[in-house]
Design a protein around this nucleic acid. Structure first.
Lengths: 195, 195
DNA sequence: CGAGTTGTTCAATAGTCATTGAACAATTGC
DNA sequence: GCAATTGTTCAATGACTATTGAACAACTCG
């Protein structure tokens, strides 16, 4: 979370612009904590809050970063499907895709699942070896099985998250977000039975 | 995920030791993707799989890293409550705390919540300003409200996760992990109703 | 004791990665 | 058509951070 460079040469706009930049920084820091680039969060947030599409040079100005950085971020965000050009023109202004759910599930399906699966496979291999050796081995099969159960639980959770239905239109997504918040609260009771 | 240094001077133990190191690397890479240090995951995993407590020098040998690094990792893991010395002695061997749930919830309560809350507060401030200005402002109050709904949803999810009861003993934890995996699968149906 | 081992500290290093600036290409508007 | 703006590429830089090595302290055990 290197904040210093961001406060260097940022334009002194109106108060709203300042508040929006605060949001961009907050989102940037957040997704940085999740192992992604802070600039991605900042660019997406700026576009998400803007009324219409914004040119790359404009984005760079408002965020106070170089055009090269904005360009890199935009191309990568486009690949993620989080952002799109409003036309095929080279200098078409960019708009945000507010439906981030498909991207989140993509990340889970890709990075997250792969990393857990790798641990699970390694644990299976270790378990086979540890069971082959007897009591003398410094590693405990019982403990390996516990870690295996934990990876299994993690994969169950991920599968559940992936099973959440994806609303297609933006309005449906907004509606879903509001309703899901309430429904999730009810799930607390179900989970509380697991004591 | 800098893998190179790890394959530098690692001891050629028996096959089981190699498999265990694979697990350590897998877990290390995993928690690194979550914004933590890879060495923490490797040290904890090694201890978690070991039958008994292990001396710091021994950990360093098995992982093929310096004692300084192990020492730093152990002190930090101790603060997190993920690892503990078996006595007050200076050179007491270290053992893993297998019940990682309290640490996970601590992270959620701390880092995760704080980051989202910061975004929410910034969004509220921006919303007030955007509503004050009228149609002419380049930022759309409606979009700010949508992002606010998304942070609200994220906080609901976090609250739900924090409400999961924590089993106290290790056996209870292991049992809970196995049962939770099944129960979580049933929750898919509930979530599927949210289309 | 005293040699060997282990824990602890810290300054130095080495590798990584976000970010920039400059140079060039494409596009727009006058 | 020409100036100004915008997008694109890439090598260079600057900052950060994990990791090490050396030096010292504490402990063990013969």
């Amino acid at each position: 979370m290197s904040v210093a460079p961001r406060e260097k040469a940022r334009p002194e706009g109106d108060r709203l612009a300042q508040r929006v930049l605060s949001v961009c920084d907050a989102v940037g820091d957040y997704i940085e904590a999740w192992g992604f680039r802070s600039i991605h969060g900042r660019v997406w947030t700026l576009l998400a809050l803007s009324r219409g599409p914004v040119a790359q040079a404009d984005i760079a100005d408002r965020l106070g970063v170089s055009r090269s950085l904005v360009h890199l971020a935009v191309t990568e965000l486009t690949q993620y499907g989080l952002v799109r050009a409003t036309s095929a023109a080279r200098n078409a202004p960019i708009e945000a895709n507010l439906d981030v759910w498909p991207t989140i599930t993509d990340v889970i399906r890709g990075r997250e699942w792969m990393l857990i699966e790798r641990a699970r496979v390694a644990l299976e291999a270790a378990l086979a070896e540890a069971e082959f050796l007897g009591e003398e081995s410094p590693y405990d099969p019982e403990r390996i099985r516990l870690l295996l159960a934990m990876t299994g639980l993690a994969q169950s959770v991920l599968r559940t998250v992936l099973a959440v239905p994806i609303p297609r239109s933006l309005e449906a997504f907004a509606k879903w977000v509001r309703r899901a918040s309430k429904t999730i609260n009810k799930l607390e009771d179900t989970l509380a039975l697991l004591s």
